[in-house]
Design a protein around this nucleic acid. Structure first.
Lengths: 213, 213
DNA sequence: CTAATTTAAAATGTATACATTTTTTGTCAA
DNA sequence: TTGACAAAAAATGTATACATTTTAAATTAG
C-alpha cells in the first residue's frame, strides 16, 4: 500500500486516540522522524487531514491538533440536520431492497458485537446512514455529508460515554429501516431529524459539562 | 509569493478559460513542463484543485478536467438553496452597519464598472453574498458555502450569457440590502431563495440547451 | 533591564534523483 | 486477426539535497 495512505490512516487514528494531544503543534520533521517516512509523505497526509478538520493551520510553521468545543459540535449537528434528512428524502424513492438488506446486516453486526471499540462502532453507524443516503444520486451532497461525518467522528472518538447512547441509537435505526421499508418517507425523515438532534444534544451537553469543569 | 499559490491560481484560471479543455487529462509532468515548475508544486496544486472540483481523479495517472452537466448544476443550486438562506438568517441578527456599507460599496463598484470580465463580476457578486453571510459565526457552514461557490464559479466562467442576468441580479441585490437594513430577516431570506433559484434555473436551462445541441 | 537589531537555528518550500507502479507497445502463438 | 504475455516507456510515489522563509536566540545599544 502507498505510504501516504498508511500514514494518513495512522496519523488520523493517533489524533483520535489522543496520542497527539489537542493544542499540540506537529511539524513535518517531527512526524517524518516519528513515523520514519520522508517529509513529502507527511506533507500530503497533513494536507489531507487538514482539509478534513483533523489538523488546523498554525501560522506558517506546523499544524495544530484542534481541540473540542461545544459550539463547534453544535454547528456540526445543525449542518447534519440541514442536509441528512434532505439526502434521505431524495434517496428514499430509489432505495433498493438490496440496500435495505445491507443496512439491516450492519445493524445486526453492530448488535452482535457489543464490545466494539468506540471508533469502530462510530464508523459502522455512519456506514449504516451512508447506505440510506447513497441512492440520492447527488455526488456533491454525499461529499459534504462525508466531510461532516469526518468532523463529527473526531468528537466521537473522544467520548467514551457514547456507549450509553448506543442502545437507543440501535432502536431508532431499526425503526428508521422499518419506516423506509413501508415507504413512509416523511416519517422516516422526521425520525432521522430527531435521531440526529438527540445524538447532537447529548454530545453538546457533555462537552459543555467538560468545559465548565 | 509561493510558487504553489501562483500555479494554483494560474491553473484554475486556465481551466476556467478553457485553456485546458474539459475531458482532457493533465499529467504532472505535462503541467510541470508547461508552467516551468517542479512536479512537487504541480502535485500540491492538483490536489488542492481536485478537492475544489476543478480537477477530477482519473484512474491512477493524471487528473481530468471535468465537463459541465445540467444535472450537476442543478444539484449545486439545490445545495445553495439549502444552505445560503440559513446562513443569511443566522447572520442577520449580527449584521453591522459597517458590513452593510461594505456590501453596498461592492454593489456600487459592480454597477459602475459595466465592462468587467465575467469571472471578475462573478467573484465580486460572491463577495457581496459572502459579506452578508459572514456574521453567522459558523465557520464550517461558511467553509461549505465557499466550496459550493468554487464549484458554481467553474460554471459561471463558462457562460458568457451571464451578462443578460446581470441587470435583474443587481436589482435583487439592492432589494436584499434594503430588507436587511430594515430588519426584515424573513423577507430577505425569501428573496435570497428566489434569487438563487432564478440564477440556478437560468444556468440549468442554458446547459440543457447546450446538451441538446 | 528593556528593546531593537542581528545572527543562528529550525522549519517549510522547491528541485532533482531514484524507486515503484501503471500504461502502453510490441511480439508471438493460437 | 485476436488474444495473451513480455518488454519498454511513461507516469507517479518517495527520498534526499538545497533554497527560502520563519522562528528563536543572542547580542548590543539605549
Amino acid at each position: 500500500m502507498l505510504k501516504k495512505q498508511q500514514l494518513y490512516q495512522q496519523l488520523k487514528q493517533d489524533i483520535q486516540l489522543q496520542h497527539w494531544a489537542p493544542g499540540q503543534v506537529l511539524t513535518q520533521q517531527q512526524l517524518a522522524q516519528h513515523y520514519a517516512v520522508s517529509r513529502i509523505v507527511v506533507r500530503d497526509a497533513q494536507h489531507a487531514l487538514m482539509s478534513e478538520g483533523w489538523l488546523a493551520a498554525h501560522g506558517k510553521a506546523g499544524m495544530q491538533v484542534p481541540g473540542f468545543s461545544a459550539t463547534e459540535a453544535e454547528e456540526l449537528c445543525m449542518l447534519r440536520l440541514q442536509l441528512e434528512p434532505l439526502a434521505l428524502t431524495l434517496a428514499a424513492a430509489n432505495l433498493s431492497f438490496s440496500q435495505l438488506g445491507q443496512a439491516e446486516d450492519l445493524l445486526a453486526y453492530i448488535a452482535a458485537n457489543t464490545q466494539l471499540a468506540p471508533y469502530q462502532r462510530g464508523e459502522l453507524n455512519w456506514q449504516f446512514h451512508r447506505i440510506l443516503y447513497q441512492s440520492c444520486a447527488k455526488p456533491h451532497l454525499l461529499r459534504l455529508l462525508d466531510q461532516l461525518h469526518q468532523q463529527v467522528s473526531r468528537y466521537l472518538g473522544y467520548q467514551e460515554q457514547a456507549l450509553a447512547y448506543a442502545d437507543t441509537s440501535a432502536a431508532e435505526h431499526a425503526e428508521l429501516l422499518s419506516l423506509l421499508r413501508s415507504g413512509n418517507t416523511y416519517l422516516a425523515s422526521e425520525l432521522l431529524t430527531r435521531h440526529i438532534a438527540a445524538a447532537g444534544n447529548l454530545l453538546v451537553q457533555w462537552l459543555q459539562k467538560q468545559q465548565g469543569a
